[in-house]
Amino acid sequence: MIYALCLVLVGIGLYGVLAKKNVVKIVIGLMIMEYGIHLLLILIGYRRNGAFPIMQPGQDPGAYASVAVDPLPQALVLTSIVISLGVLALLVALCLRLYEKYGTFDISEMRRLRG
């Protein structure tokens, strides 16, 4: 159920990308999408009252796996945040350059390309 809420967040971001005319708002929509996914990934690894994911000496691996929080999604989210940071920096730079060329942030006025 809570996963569906993350997907709602992704849907809001997708709406922003598809429906907005301002390039900066499109970038924000894209980032909201990514945040929804990061939240989804974190929730996949979450376990209520879970133990910290460090195996004690002499602990049975099966017993360990049944109580510990899954540490992998956190690593994935960290990687994914770095990637979305890179995309964000590139997109913001593109927006600035577009403003320099067109004098507007409105995507409907940027139509050199067609066909």
Partner: peptide, 24 residues
């Protein structure tokens, strides 16, 4: 670098963009 480059960028609008801003 990303922060400084983006914040210290001098945006010089010229040509088509300049005309559009003036029209607005």
């Amino acid at each position: 670098l990303v922060f400084v480059m983006l914040s210290a960028l001098h945006i010089i609008v010229s040509g088509e963009g300049r005309r559009r801003i003036e029209r607005r």
